[in-house]
Amino acid sequence: MSGGHLGNHAHLHVPGATPVHRLAPEAALVGLVAFAVAVALTPRTYVAAFAVDAAVLAGVIALARLSPALVLRRLVVIVPFLAVAAVLPFVGGGDQASVAGVEVSRDGLWAAWGIVAKAVLGATASIVFSATNRLPEVLTALTRLRVPPTLAAIVSSMLRSLDLVADQLRRMRTAMVARAHDPRWLWQARPIATSMGTVFVRSYERGERTHAAMVARGYSGTMPDLGDRGATAAEWVAALVPAAVAAAALVVHLTGTGG
């Protein structure tokens, strides 16, 4: 028995009872999107605004009691974007600046900075969201945010089925390997293609059985709302604080440079 194991998609979730965890997922989701938009709209030269955004995020991470090491580890997913950004100073045109004796493009450097800053802030905010919200609750939240319930239901059961299909593929692969299947060349791909076909048929049959099991429990085509509760006004306000601060930092800079 796998005591306490929370499943494949739950691996992003870090259990906790902090105010950030308790926030209704739909409020948190809207707060995340608003924050990301505010960050994306901030011109890359407003370095101080990015500092404010980073400070707000740090505050949320502390409030959620997430370990900074965990957040940094999960940030690894944006490395490919950083690699692209790292090229820009060397390929950009315009003014040249000298950094540690190497001639680089000033525009390219700013462009790289903009990508890095926005990617890190946006990704960090998403990491905090995924660590403090369970996926099923997020899916219910989508329904409350007026995403068609059928669509949310499809996504939900698809994610659940993915686990089963992946399991099935793994078992079939093991069974093939156990019979000395060791594909190295393209013409050996046939068993893999066949097994994909088999998995497709089995998944289809499973879909039919799952549907029967749903109908047996009174399902009539509309997914009932199993959600806990809607977000309160206070939760909406709290969720939008980071975005509001980011927007304020942006506005202060705009008026500051404009005046």
Binding site: A10, P136, L139, R209, T210, A213, D225, L226
Partner: peptide, 20 residues
């Protein structure tokens, strides 16, 4: 596995009553 199609056990157990 055909019967438990939602993400948490509690949701699956609540599915029938919610349909009712």
């Amino acid at each position: 596995d055909d019967q438990l199609f939602l993400h948490t056990v509690a949701d699956d157990v609540a599915f029938g009553p919610a349909n009712l």
